[in-house]
């Protein structure tokens, strides 16, 4: 009986959304702000990757909010997991074989390098802070799975997180202090498609990459420590 009611409710919601979506044609030339972003994005913000110019330039405040959401989720997870007792049954964890152990130790710096490359070149190639940070966190996940006796120092990860967050806010406040708006692009924009171009965007993306990477690695660390 309850299942029938739930299926009926889901069909009503799906029907409503479909009826509403019929009015929105797919793939027409973009209206209003999409148009402006595509045509004027490069010259107004200086980055060749238009997604980056939207994420950090036009809607940078939303990005600040998003990394705060991730920060709140990480701290919340740490607060709740911290109250569990560690499992007192000491399960025998079989150490990985020599090939897996050596392979993981070899791959770890390579994956870190790929992640760092992605967020440093965020304004030139597809990618950016979130993607680079997630790849860095998956490198840490690989280390936890392959070599089970290495751990991240907690103070180090907290410090990296703090530096990342403060850099983003400091860059924004400098824009406010020189008389313009918060997150104003005050560095010179330079030539498009150079590494040192686009004003504050590389700095912001490096801060985001470090912060997101250390947060996600912290989540993995918290979960594995307590299980």
């Amino acid at each position: 009986m309850r299942k029938l009611f739930v299926i009926l409710l889901l069909l009503i919601i799906a029907g409503g959304i479909t009826l509403s979506l019929k009015e929105i044609p797919f793939g027409i030339p973009k209206t209003k702000i999409g148009d402006h972003f595509i045509n004027k994005g490069v010259e107004e913000t200086g980055s060749v990757n238009i997604v980056t110019s939207v994420v950090v330039g036009y809607r940078g405040f939303d990005t600040l909010g998003e990394i705060t959401v991730l920060f709140a989720a990480t701290i919340g997870l740490g607060a709740v997991i911290g109250t569990f007792r560690k499992n007192s049954v000491n399960r025998e964890v079989e150490a990985a074989s020599l090939i897996v152990y050596t392979g993981c130790r070899f791959l770890f710096p390579v994956i870190l390098l790929v992640g760092t490359y992605i967020f440093i070149h965020g304004h030139l190639t597809p990618g950016g802070g979130f993607q680079g940070g997630a790849i860095i966190a998956s490198a840490f996940l690989l280390m936890y799975l392959g070599c089970s006796n290495k751990r991240i120092k907690e103070n180090l990860s907290k410090t990296v997180e703090m530096i990342g967050g403060l850099t983003f806010i400091a860059v924004g406040i400098i824009g406010l202090a020189i008389g313009q708006d918060f997150l104003f692009n005050f560095l010179p924009k330079g030539e498009p498609a150079e590494l040192l171009s686009a004003g504050i965007i590389p700095i912001v993306y490096i801060a985001i990459g470090l912060k997101v990477g250390s947060e996600l690695a912290g989540i993995i660390d918290n979960l594995i420590q307590k299980s």
Partner: peptide
Amino acid sequence: FNLFVFFEILCISSYSLVAYFGDKTSI
């Protein structure tokens, strides 16, 4: 959309704070 992002910050912080004591009913 900015309203949605800040609304999410509010909601996610309150989910974790409700579970702060860690006993079974809180979680």
